[in-house]
Simulated scan of single mutants.
Amino acid sequence: MADFNFIPSDSSIFILTGIPGLETAHIWISIPFCTVYIMALLGNFTVLFVVGKEKSLHKPMYLLLCMLALTDITTSTSFMPKALCIFWFNLKSITVKGCLTQMFLFHALSNVHSAILVTMAFDRYVAICNPLRYATILSNARIAKLGLVCLVIAVFFLLPLPLLLSRQPFCANRIIPHKYCDHNAVANMSCGDITVSRVYGLVIAFIFIVCDVTLIGLSYGLIIRAVLRISSKKANNKALNTCSAHIWLILMSYPLRLFSSLTDRFGQGIAPHVHVILSNVTYLIPPMLNPIIYGVKIKELCDKVAKNICRIHSPHTTEFKPA
């Protein structure tokens, strides 16, 4: 396919190359990426549908799962449709405003996702350490307010990133070696002084990751202390089992994000296509696996999903008896 819009002729656009060095293989590379993206959408929409339909699941824990599913859908959708347009149709151009908007949405939604994982850790702490007051401490209305607070905080702290870059002069060579508008990649397009933007981005990333991991660690430290005080082994196993799905989500999300962030900023010796692929794996694999993990680990949700699938595949039929 002809590379018909690779050279920018308009000062108001950027060019996204896709995966640098592997442009000729974009069609083949798109197959696993598209498959993972579709599976992520199906899994997370299934969770939203089942929890919304089943009144018995209208509880704080499942409301948090819906929030997590919603952030998984929106985060991956903030960059995958454009990436598939690059892979399939070679549509590499994106306006500067569109690029900055995509960058803001991607980073803000990623941080909302992280904040929801922190809220889920607090939910597990209350459920295990203070079960008698769980219903009064964490009502559905309070969980909704916490979710709104997470969104407001993410927007407030991430909005300066595109605003700082929008004031920068961009160079003539506006080719971004990525398949979406990452903050570092866009900052490198500037011909001005980007020290403030770089430092702010690094500080915000550090603060969010450190604060979130610290709060999650504190919650699980208190949970472990409470579990060790329980004399019954069966009760111990039951308490820990309620946290297993959340622990898996944490182990999938934070190590990948931290490693991707560090290699993106300090891994100058790593090939560009490795940076891009690693970044996409970080933000595509967890959204695909999250519904599977908490669908398998949480029996009540698994049963409701199975029941709804059976309803779809085995609709009621009317028997006609001869007169």
Rank of each mutant, 00 (worst) to 15 (best):
G147N: 13
L132T: 10
N188A: 12
V51K: 08
H26L: 08
R265L: 07
K307A: 10
I116F: 02
I216R: 05
M120Q: 13
F266R: 02
N140G: 14
F33C: 13
T77R: 06
H107T: 06
I13V: 15
G21H: 12
K53V: 13
T282M: 02
I143F: 03
S260Q: 07
S9E: 14
C129A: 15
S11Q: 07
F49T: 13
H275G: 07
M67I: 13
P291V: 14
A185Q: 04
C243P: 00
N290T: 09
A226E: 00
I285G: 05
D72M: 00
L158G: 02
L251W: 11
D10N: 12
K92E: 03
C181F: 04
F157T: 07
A154D: 07
P60H: 04
G201A: 06
G52A: 07
D212K: 04
H107E: 11
N237P: 05
T77A: 14
R198C: 01
L41P: 09
D264H: 11
E319V: 15
A25V: 06
T77G: 07
I27V: 12
F106R: 03
T101C: 05
L163N: 13
L65H: 01
F259S: 09
S260R: 06
P60K: 08
G147R: 10
P286E: 02
Y294K: 03
F320Y: 14
D193V: 02
A135L: 09
R133L: 12
V126F: 01
V227L: 01
I270F: 02
L151F: 04
R124M: 09
F206K: 11
I204M: 12
V96H: 03
T136E: 05
